[in-house]
Each structure stands twice: as C-alpha cells, then as structure tokens.
Design a protein around this nucleic acid. Structure first.
Length: 263
DNA sequence: GCTAAATGTTGAT
DNA sequence: TCAACCTTTAGCT
C-alpha cells in the first residue's frame, strides 16, 4: 500500500540486490505474459517515478509496475519459497527473490511508452531531476482544492492520501483552499516539506511526519500510531490543539484534517 | 469464517 | 459520481 516513498525504497533496494545480475523471471499466476521473454536476462536498471516502478532489461524494454491501492512486493533472501498463486511476477537471483502481488499494472513497455508515461507525470519530490515550477504553474492556475491538486499525479507525482493530509496539516493549510489562492511562499513550503518528509519515508520505509515533541503524550507512552498528525486519526484529539480531527469524503477518498489548526 | 478497509487509478455514466 | 480492478489483513463472530 504505497505512496512514492515505498516505490523509491523498492527501487533502491532492488538496485542493490538485482541490477547487474542474471535474473529468473516467472509468473506463478500466469498473468504476466512477457515473463518468459525476460527470463534469464540481466537486469540493467531499476527506476522510480512517482508511484511508478520500472525494471529495465536492456534492449527488451522496461517492466512497468504500478501497485495501485493494495499491491505489494515482498523481497526475501533465498532459498526460494513456494510462490502463492497470486504472485504476478517473481524475480530471483542466487541470493534474493522478490514476489509482486496484486498490482494494477505489470507490463513490458518500450522507450516511447516510458517517455509518454514520464511526460504525463508532474515533478516527483523524490527525484533529483524534478522541476517544481512545473507543478506550481498548474496548481496556481487551478480552481480545484489544494487537497485535490496534491493527489493529482499530473500536477505532482508520488503524493497519496496519507502524505496529502500530513503535508497540509504541517503547512497549516485548509485543504479546501483553491489552487489560485495559494501563495508562492505556501507552495514552496509544501514542496520543501514534501521532499523532506518523503525522503524520511524512504529511509524509514514508512510514513513518519510527527515531530518528536508532538509524539510524546503528556501522560502516556509513545504509541505506534504517533507517526501521523491527522491521517487515520478521525475523532481523535489533534496533537497540537486538542480539538477533534475531522474525516470527510473527498473525491471518493478520505480526507483528514484539523479545522482549528488548518485555517 | 466473514466483512470491511486499505498509502490508487481508470473508464463509463 | 460511481463502479471496476487487484489482494491482504484486522477485527469481528
């Protein structure tokens, strides 16, 4: 269940473990037809862009993976375990194997298709080549809410429901503010914080946005759920002001925010 | 054992 | 705005 940080973490881990090695490629579920074509080839690169993950096999092309809402990749050291019937693709070397389960996308694509994919994505705060101004140009001209815009992968790539809620909270921004009403300074704050929080997410391999001082409860111990300020904290007291965190449906997703801290 | 929910996106109405 | 798709897990009974 991934936002951009999960995908980038996978790209880093799999670069270390699979790139430059001869890889066995199979599809226990038998729904990835190109597996047999890639089987036994050397993996040349792994790349993440937003929530998209690409495995390059030289001239053969790229395996384009999108995990969707509940896709997962399990990476384990060998010996190989029997694969579940739901494993769409298994990559394996002598030392490691990775099982892809439940993706919305797992397809071999060519250079043109890869270029087209990147073309339609906004800048990714986790990529060194990101041009944040491309996002500001779209955002500052849109009458959509900043909450909707942060989730729009054409505007900015890699942010999902959890990071959206947390970034808006940390910026003290009302999620319903229109893109056109956002100041450049507010945008810069969002972008810089996105970079910081998502990098932290890659490192921790999970989303942690709370500051240590906000994590400590006055009378209690630190809880595992202390990782976020508002995400999945509906009806719970805001860590800073104590008023109730609100959950409201927005475009089919759950939006969490603190109406008192986010004016 | 059953149900609901989950860090997502697309395409039809 | 809604349904469809993909699968696991937590929280019930």
């Amino acid at each position: 269940m991934p936002e951009g940080h999960t995908i980038h973490r996978l790209a880093l881990d799999h670069s270390d473990r699979f790139v430059g090695r001869t890889v066995t490629v199979t599809s226990p579920q038998d729904r990835f037809a190109a597996a047999s074509r890639l089987d036994g080839q050397v993996l040349s690169d792994v790349e993440a862009y937003g929530k998209h993950l690409l495995y390059r096999f030289g001239e053969a092309g790229w395996v384009h993976i999108h995990l969707g809402l509940f896709g997962k990749i399990w990476t384990k050291p060998t010996p190989l375990e029997p694969a579940r019937s739901t494993v769409r693709m298994r990559l394996a070397t002598i030392d490691w194997f990775a099982d892809l389960v439940g993706p919305t996308q797992c397809m071999l694509i060519d250079a043109d298709e890869r270029a087209a994919l990147f073309q339609r994505l906004g800048p990714d705060p986790l990529r060194a080549d990101a041009v944040p101004d491309a996002a500001w140009q779209k955002l500052s001209k849109s009458r959509q809410s900043v909450a909707a815009l942060l989730m729009d992968q054409h505007v900015i790539a890699g942010i999902g429901n959890a990071f959206r809620a947390e970034l808006l909270y940390r910026a003290g921004l009302n999620p319903h503010v229109e893109g056109t009403r956002l100041t450049f300074a507010q945008w810069q704050m969002l972008w810089r914080d996105a970079k910081r929080m998502m990098r932290l997410g890659v490192r921790a391999n999970r989303i942690v946005t709370t500051r240590p001082e906000d994590r400590e409860r006055r009378h209690g111990r630190v809880q595992p759920s202390d990782a976020t300020y508002v995400y999945r904290r509906a009806e719970m007291p805001c860590r800073r002001c104590g008023s109730m965190v609100v959950m409201e449906p927005l475009a089919g997703r759950r939006l969490y925010w603190c109406p008192s801290c986010q004016r």
